[in-house]
């Protein structure tokens, strides 16, 4: 049983590593606010697929790594990602049977909560926030969700991560 549970850990780790790299990829200035929340998307997928293995603790560790990578306040992304993981874990049974575009809408909601948390913490630190920042990144996340979902699902099936 325990041996069965551990299968395919490296696929999950690699997907998170790729997500972190995509977050760190340099982008032109105007495109900055349009960057989808890659790490949050990968996290949502794995939370829905393997809720027993991927949960709040993984989200927290990922968030801390992301904070260090992006030079934000230590704990900022950790908090936001933990909340996203928590909400996903509450609803995963309902969401994962929905058609892809409806999942996308749910993901928009989750990404929006994630973004709002991060921008609030930025606001508390006194950084200026523009209005478009609230919806730009979640919107892109929503549009990209079906593709991310299919790619990660095929990866999961191919390597039989369970």
């Amino acid at each position: 049983m325990s041996q069965h549970k551990q299968r395919g850990n490296w696929v999950i780790v690699m997907s998170f590593v790729v997500a972190l790299m995509l977050m760190a990829l340099p982008m032109p200035d105007w495109a900055g606010i349009w960057r989808p929340a890659w790490v949050a998307l990968a996290l949502i997928y794995w939370c829905m697929a393997l809720p027993a293995r991927i949960g709040i603790m993984v989200a927290f560790i990922l968030g801390i790594l992301l904070d260090v990578l992006s030079g934000t306040l230590l704990g900022q992304n950790a908090l936001a990602l933990s909340v996203v993981a928590f909400i996903t874990l509450q609803f995963y049974q309902r969401v994962r049977v929905l058609p892809l575009w409806q999942q996308g809408v749910t993901v928009f909601g989750l990404a929006f909560i994630h973004q709002v948390l991060i921008l609030w913490i930025n606001g508390i630190q006194g950084m200026p926030v523009s209005f478009s920042a609230y919806w730009a990144s979640p919107l892109i996340s929503m549009v990209l969700w079906p593709w991310i979902f299919v790619v990660l699902r095929d990866l999961r099936r191919k390597y039989q991560v369970a």
Binding site: L73, G75, Q76
Partner: peptide, 27 residues
Amino acid sequence: MRLIAVSVVSIALMTADHKGRHLESLR
């Protein structure tokens, strides 16, 4: 609940990071 524990830890980390340089070595 785990979420509450994690949130408290994150907020504590953020406060410590924001107020001073206690976390330089960790970072």
